[in-house]
Design a protein around this nucleic acid. Structure first.
Lengths: 343, 343
DNA sequence: AGGTCACGCTTAACCGGGTAAGTGACCCGA
DNA sequence: TCGGGTCACTTACCCGGTTAAGCGTGACCT
């Protein structure tokens, strides 16, 4: 294992100074084309890769972005959402030769502390914030810190921060009208954390749409996105006297759990109960019947978030430095879990 | 947003030199207790956090480890395994104030290139390698590179690298004997990638155990761990003339898909078909019936892997610098998806 | 009293790459 | 022929934290 090769080594080999090598490698003026080619050739031959720490120290940029996830290991593991998001983020970042630093935290305080440390240490150039809440402390915190950040979700009112989001209200209307057209009049919804912004948005979208349709019942129950909670709520719903003929779940995991409960109670899906899931992961196609769900390209979403962050960091050509980006809303993919309500 | 505070600022405020501040902050001898306390107080008051790049540059350590995942976004998303593993890894790392750098790659070549770059850039101090294959190019590659690494899985023969693994053979025997005791004589197995080391180990463990028992059939079909493949193979198995009475799946995702296929074909689980899954994620408890599965604590496993890596990096008290670590094998958790075979 | 040693601190160099300022050499126009 | 300008490169210092070496002071020993 030989010593790493530094620009000093290249300079020596090429018979020029460190400075010339630096200019040559960074494509800056200051060296002749002949010398540049020679230096590049030598650098390639010696397998030169610049030391990240040294570069960071002088240009003061980490060439990395951070993401702190505040969800339990179990939720993170089972929800395909996060890994797909990360994979999309990662693809964009590595295309721009940025690194991704990941940390899992317990509490908001811990999360804020991570941001503070990352920024003070200059370990990251910016962060992506998931699970945006309706009145999120983190937004002001990072803005005060001066830490470049993008909110993954929104829209964020009076934002001092750009957000990448999609319209959640339209798909809600779409689902409800679809179920209504199928003849469903008693509909329930198992929602996610009620403190999250998109939950609030969906809440009111459902309420508004329900009011406009002649529904007998449209109730919402908040949960924590876990299968256990999803199953528990579904079990209660399906055991009630006037049970709903359709249930909408705010994520795929709860929907699968709900389907399990229906099986357990001998309630046939879709003949006796229709099920709709948000977030069309492969999970929705695993079950029988396959779940009708709201499809969105989460990888692409992650990619857009990363793009937005790179843009405010300034690593990107900032022609389209749009402050907030709205993505294509989720599309309803009808599958086997929805059917006309029985008379 | 004021300028970052550096040790020079603290030195000025305390009326001492940069060197003294450094000694004080790092708990090294060279300053009196009085001065040390004073410096620490001033540093705390000014909110000092050392610049990571500067420290890395002088001590040449990145205080970060890397993990490159070579799986498609969809597999990563849906398999709870990875996120649980990462969460365990992360917990240990952040306890030692190490960062985790994540990258997703397509090919082995890309993965090797990532390792080379990370190490050359000194972006990481070591890496964790998942999905160890039976004749894995990566092992020699990183060893040649001199990049500290730990294999997540094993055991690796003639290893130049430590590995953290658990006995896969014993649980295989346990499953097969359990199913045999339940009266099953025609058993099938839907396995994972055949190039992976643990797949090979399980292959021979099943073969050996099957030979010792009076089984009518014990066939294995390799797949790619996706639900689609799992469903396809299960569909073929259950449509055959002499269909198995029990199927063992090498991961939870395929098991859930298999259960879906059984429902689809009107085959009752567990009365007509028993199902066993490896890797007991919450997914296995979501379905109805809940899946009998092999439980192991994946977070804890990840934590041990990270511990091993920190130990060879030298960041840990290396009392127990065991070269390879064997963990507690998976335990069978019987649930509703297994029952006595029908006569 | 003189020598020695430990302590507490400063100085200065170093890690490796970036970059402003400086220096010849050369060309060009007046 | 000389001033002015450009080109090609070197010099030197910067980033911020670490650390070997140096140095003055006081204590302790003989």
């Amino acid at each position: 294992m030989t010593r790493r090769v530094t620009i000093a080594d290249i300079a020596a080999a090429a018979g020029v100074s460190k400075g010339a090598v630096s200019y040559a490698l960074n494509g800056r003026p200051g060296v002749s084309e002949t010398t540049r080619t020679k230096i590049l050739a030598i650098a390639a031959e010696m397998g030169f890769v610049p030391n990240r720490a040294a570069r960071s120290l002088s240009v003061s940029s980490a060439q990395a972005v951070g993401i702190a996830l505040r969800r339990s290991a179990r939720t993170l593991g089972i929800e395909p959402y996060f890994m797909e998001l990360i994979s999309g983020i990662e693809a964009t970042l590595s295309a721009g030769s940025f690194g991704l630093t990941l940390q899992i935290v317990d509490t908001v305080e811990a999360e804020l502390e991570v941001y503070r440390r990352w920024w003070a240490e200059r370990r990251v150039d910016g962060v992506l914030m998931c699970d945006v809440g309706s009145d999120d402390r983190r937004l002001d915190f990072v803005a005060d810190l001066g830490l470049p950040a993008v909110a993954v979700g929104g829209p964020v009112e009076g934002a001092r921060l750009p957000a990448v989001w999609h319209d959640d209200a339209a798909p809600c209307r779409e689902i409800l009208e679809y179920l209504h057209a199928l003849g469903h009049r008693r509909i329930a919804r198992v929602a996610g954390f009620d403190h999250l912004l998109h939950t609030a948005i969906r809440d009111s979208a459902y309420a508004d749409t329900a009011a406009a349709l002649d529904l007998e019942a449209m109730e919402t129950f908040h949960s924590d996105y876990t299968g256990e909670q999803g199953a528990r709520i579904t079990r209660r719903l399906l055991s009630s006297a006037k049970r709903p003929t359709a249930i909408i779940f705010d994520n795929d995991v709860m929907a699968v759990a709900g389907l399990g409960v229906a099986h357990e109670l001998g309630i046939h899906v879709p003949h006796e109960l229709s099920i709709v899931a948000w977030d069309d992961s492969p999970l929705c196609r695993l079950t029988h019947p396959a779940l009708t769900s709201l499809t969105r390209d989460i990888s692409a979403y992650g990619a857009q978030c990363a793009q937005a962050l790179l843009s405010i960091i300034g690593a990107e050509p900032h022609e389209d430095r749009a402050f907030s980006v709205q993505c294509r809303p989720a599309q309803l993919s009808p599958r086997g879990s929805t059917a006309p309500a029985r008379a």
